[in-house]
Amino acid sequence: MKNLYKKTYQYDGTNAGMLCTLADAIKRGEMPTFQTANSVTLNFAEHTHIVDTDEERSEVFLDWLKEISDEYSVRMLIYILMSDCIGYEDTLLKYCLLLRKHENNTMRMQANPIVRSIHDRCYKVTKEIHRFKGLIRFQELESGKYWAPFEPDNNIIVALIPHFTARFADQKWILHDISRQIIVTWDKQILYNKKAADYMKDEKISDAEKDIQQLWQTFYKSITITNRINPKLQAQFMPRRYWKYLPEVE
């Protein structure tokens, strides 16, 4: 009788909440369906388990996974959490169960469909991170800071911090995820700011910026081999959705 109705786990849609949900499912040995708090509920209440989100418990869960498997396998999970995982909880749960069963051999099981799915999804995120190491464009502000607006598909801003901290340690800079309105600033230390609009409201682009951008456009134009124009190839490497903040492509 127990398995007649599949249990539903409901959580608040956050990453911490989802990790707690996975932890609960493993602990209780169940394979539930997943639901976020704002989705439409069709199940009977008695089959729904409402998960409390607890940051600390989600950390403990990740530590436990690291302990039973390895750093690398858990890092893949963390990258995946930067993508929109709603609807993907089931695969993540199966992945965690694989980690428990096969420990640090899991990632070598390249033919396993769950491992492949995790790999592919993780690749999409890390690929975008790598792309934005190149596609980020800073503009000099009057305050002397360098500001970079961008709109990534995944929530990767945190993953860009180590790269830009090492590269522009002597420069004050701001990474600004426009669609999520998250800001990360660097001035000898990293600050994470969720109220992007407030932070930016008194800033202005510096006067010299236009000249440098024009110089860059000049370079971009004259480095192109005009008898080999191939926009399809260009868009394959640099999809159009990323063009909005690139001064060279207008």
Binding site: G134, I225, R228, N230, K232, L233, Q234, F237, L246
Partner: peptide, 12 residues
Amino acid sequence: ICHSWTPDGRCI
């Protein structure tokens, strides 16, 4: 790291 691609499809 590639920073941009020109209309001929080559990276900058």
